[in-house]
Design a binder for these strands. Structure first.
Lengths: 345, 345
DNA sequence: CTGAAAGCGCTTACAG
DNA sequence: CTGAAAGCGCTTACAG
């Protein structure tokens, strides 16, 4: 039995079935309020009967848009980003926009290529989870004016004039330190993120501020680390062990750092929280099931993604072109679990 | 100082600068071998000078394609998928194709909507990491013929006629059991994935086969679990504790299950590997830094993604339309770490 | 090897 | 409220 090869119905086909012009069909689809009720019903019925589905390439060509949003992610492999992406995708899906994810740290992708890609993709908007991107953009003067609206999420541009949505990193770091101090810790160290990164700096600043407010000691050699990854925490474990005077608590700039740290300490016979209290930042899924369960600062990840998407939509539709760039800062939350303990015990 | 608002150059502009027709410019871009050398050079130079970038919406409209690939993911939040997506994206990026990720288990997305989405998106091809999708497709007869080529990766369709790329799940499970038996374990249990899932069945089959080959005991009550998630492992921990006769080793159908299990056991004073050996499946990033570091079966995740993408490209370009659907099976690898130990000690 | 022309499937000022 | 017509920016048979 052969199946009839049915051609894909187009607007013209719907128009014929409904007994109207293609223009009217298009209007029903795009501005239904401008069409008389009976006509509209007829068109909707014809749409159903023909099984019509719009050809987005044609619509986008005509509207001079692409219908897609590019999201720049520093590292797709990092589980921190998954919930953010989910928030972004969900929001754009409701508006018929595709999300194209681009990993900015792919081994074979130099920064110039990212800019190149942004131009070629001709997206309707960009969300960057990588705060390092604007450098590339700003170097290339004029690049910005020929790119679609850009929103930063989580990270942001240090130079200050792009809209952004982020967590309250400063306050989160402060909360972390105050939590440790409340448990009795007087010597608190910090495992930082990569140098130059805006998150690294905001979290260090919050940490330092809290230490000062509480009148605690602050030593240069208690600042370790240099990346948000697991292995950075593992390396810092060894450095901590080698310190002459050790902090009794460490605030880690990410959960991943904390996992690497705790794991490597464990290998060396140092136990958390018996010998050392550890607090992370992010609250990724595995945090509640690590051993010990990780005390951390929770970022509202899905919400961050959704808020960034909404803000970008505002810009795309021209609802936000005026004045100062928006900077939304979402609150974070202390989640107390088993990796921090009273000191001395 | 005002910046001149330069219009985006189109093919016509390049043609004017190069002193040729638009058709020739298009040929240089698409079939350079059909254009005379000097002409080609002139066009390339003009492309550079004008800063021309192709409008993909126009090309796609004309070519009757969309330039995008849909990837169906059962759960974007699961870190298992990140490396696979990276492999997929990298491959398609080289071919100028966009990847659109769609989460099939979003709370507010019923299965019919997935099919709806696949039709509306009109992608050039589909990769499904969710083996449950074909059910929806097949129910709706005729749906398949109006959809672009589909490849399954990791999971596959139980009914058997879609091409797929997957790991050797049966052999992986077998390796896991043999490893445990080699350590002296005689009572081996299994924490399974969700019922009906192809991976669940392949891994259980491999596990069962190995148990039989080795002449070990196999008890119904040693099969626990029911999902690949963390919490499934945590629930199974309690069940294991309540068993009258406990297996001394558990093979988990995913690393996440193993983490949930080990974590919950630990809370209850049961230590791995002292009291119980545990082996996972997948080898996600955190496995090497869990406490204890997890012994597991490694799936070549990036390679799985890349292979699926290549296979889909073959189908899109019509290089594979003939005969039996391809089924690539990639080898897995036993990674021995600290969660399994000699028994009795 | 190259150009003129048609057409991909839509949307939207314009006119009525 | 509705239709005829132009046009979005490409690609590709067709003719030369």
């Amino acid at each position: 039995m052969r199946m009839a090869k049915t051609a894909i119905p187009k607007i013209k086909d719907v128009a014929r079935v409904a007994g109207v012009s293609a223009a009217t069909v298009s209007r029903v689809l795009n501005h239904p309020e401008t069409v008389a009720e009976p006509t509209r019903q007829a068109v909707l019925e014809a749409t159903r009967r023909t099984g019509y589905r719009i050809n987005l390439a044609a619509r986008n060509l005509r509207r001079r848009r692409t219908g897609s949003i590019v999201v720049l992610v520093p590292n797709l492999g990092n589980p921190f980003f998954s919930a953010i992406l989910a928030g972004i995708e969900m929001t754009f899906a409701r508006h018929g926009l595709n999300v194209v994810v681009f990993d900015t740290q792919q081994p074979d992708v130099p920064p110039e290529l990212v800019l190149e890609y942004l131009h070629n993709s001709r997206s309707d908007g960009i969300i960057s989870l990588d705060g390092g991107i604007p450098e590339t953009l700003l170097k290339n003067s004029g690049a910005r004016s020929s790119l679609p609206p850009i929103i930063f999420a989580c990270e942001w541009d240090a130079n200050g004039d792009y809209p952004s949505v982020r967590a309250d990193n400063f306050e989160g770091a402060r909360m972390a330190v105050r939590h440790l101090a409340a448990l009795g810790h007087r010597k608190i160290g910090h495992l930082q993120g990569p140098p130059g990164n805006v998150l690294t700096e905001a979290r260090r600043a919050g940490m330092t501020a809290a230490i000062c407010e509480l009148g605690l000691e602050l030593r240069r050699e208690w600042f370790l680390g240099g990346s948000f990854a697991l292995e950075s925490g593992a390396r810092a474990a060894i450095e901590w062990i080698d310190l002459k005077e050790r902090p009794s608590a460490l605030f880690c700039a990410s959960d991943q750092i904390a996992f690497g740290l705790i794991s490597e300490l464990h290998r060396n016979g140092v136990y958390v929280p018996r010998d050392l209290s550890v607090i992370g930042f992010d609250d990724i899924d595995i945090a509640s099931r690590f051993i010990p369960p990780l005390t951390t600062i929770r970022q509202p990840r899905t919400q961050l993604g959704a808020a960034a998407a909404e803000l970008l939509l505002d810009h795309i539709e021209g609802r936000r072109d005026t004045g100062e760039p928006v900077r939304e800062i979402l609150p974070v939350e202390l989640v107390v679990r088993g990796s921090t303990a009273q000191w001395p015990q």
